[in-house]
Design a binder for these strands. Structure first.
Lengths: 228, 228
DNA sequence: AGGCTTATCGTCAATACGACGATAAGGAGC
DNA sequence: GCTCCTTATCGTCGTATTGACGATAAGCCT
């Protein structure tokens, strides 16, 4: 067995990058810290991994605690382990990326003074290295929209092609041709599943409603312009 | 500050998935464990993160210690934190993926009884959850060949188009049309840099030698068949 | 020289994509 | 009702990329 001198002790935490699309902007769920260090500063939600739970389970637990919603897409983003990233002690943090549809209002966490959706473009300084983690999460989401069905995770259970297109436009910060986008996404096998219903909630001609299909990958991919 | 009761202590380790292409097979660097648990079983190389070093630095240090070569491509693969993954205590391991050209012979590590390149197709049971980590690393490498210049990391400093093609064929386990592959890779801006030299080490007409170019991404990507 | 091997260039049809015209189908104002 | 406006959806066309594969180039071997 190991003796305590064989290895240095670490604290292990999880941090969550929870993204959603609302009010025409890509937003992240942030909490305001109620304690030092970085008291009053915005930070990513997260917390300590407990002894008996896996790291993945800790992330899922925190996600439910913070959003009040379960069943969201959740994937590991990366692990951040600079020696001085937490001034108090040696903390290694495993970051996770979660995507959510436009949820009502975030639940104020137990140890957070405040919680809210903040447009990622207007995020200022964050606690610890959370600005870097958030940037990595946003970049991951942007990249995965190209070749996976991840965009549908930002949409409610039933959605129109135009709503999915707006997700892409907002996350990528570009504008896409509605006709080509429609041709593209309806052409990918298994991406969308027609419900048979229509809606006219955006004005204009009623649009067909779809559910997420079984396909997880987009082939061929939906590429951003080479330059961007 | 935290008191010790605020958080459970963890040990943090790094594990390395070091891949290379040799003898017509994709091989991983494995070490034979010299101590319990899993004594005598093959495992991924790795070790404890030290107090004063970052997790990334620990991975780089272990990589040099195990291969004797520095400057290899190294990227974070994922973090594995099931409570029981190490029977002795709670260990969270950050896995890294490294790609290497065909190196001479691995250095026997200090705490490993033996080290060698093992074809990934013939890997049996590994210690801990290392089989899963290795599988994830192989899958990551396969996926990244599609849209990055990562394949060149498996090649020596100067290589031919055919050698790069063999990397793809072996890693993906497919055969590719030499003519289309040539057109493709020579057509991607910045991927290959001609040296002006040629070689005929494979028999047949001498082939032009190239160096890795500056491009890190392949646009358009080199896609595997949709089905596979 | 003739044959074998691999490298490299070309051709052609199928496919995917960007730009964009045309039509469909609802609501608002009259 | 009709007209206009909005958005949805379908279609067309020219171009770029791909996969299949023929043709030629340039070494080595006998």
């Amino acid at each position: 067995m190991y003796s305590p001198s064989d290895f240095p002790p670490f604290a292990v935490t999880v941090d969550l990058v929870v993204l959603t699309v609302r009010s025409d902007a890509l937003c992240a769920l942030l909490v305001r810290r109620g304690e030092a260090p970085f008291r009053g500063r915005w930070a990513l939600p997260g917390g300590f991994v407990q002894v008996a739970e896996s790291v993945d389970a800790a992330a899922a637990r925190e996600l439910v605690e913070e959003t009040g919603v379960s069943g969201l897409h959740l994937e590991q983003l990366g692990t951040y382990g600079e020696p001085r990233r937490d001034p108090r002690m040696r903390v290694v943090s495993v970051a996770y990326l979660a995507l959510a549809p436009d949820l009502p209002v975030p639940v104020a966490g137990t140890d957070a003074a405040d919680a809210s959706w903040v447009p990622v473009s207007g995020v200022g300084a964050l606690a610890f290295d959370h600005a870097q983690i958030l940037a990595d999460g946003v970049e991951r989401a942007r990249a995965k929209l190209e070749y996976t069905a991840l965009g549908t995770e930002f949409c409610p259970a039933e959605f129109t092609v135009a709503e999915l297109r707006r997700v892409y436009e907002i996350v990528w910060g570009v504008s896409l041709d509605p006709r080509n986008f429609h041709r593209k996404v309806t052409g990918v096998e298994g991406l969308l599943e027609a419900t048979g219903e229509t809606t006219s909630r955006d004005g204009g001609r009623p649009a067909a409603l779809y559910r997420r299909g079984a396909a997880g990958v987009l082939y061929p991919p939906l590429v951003r312009a080479p330059g961007s």
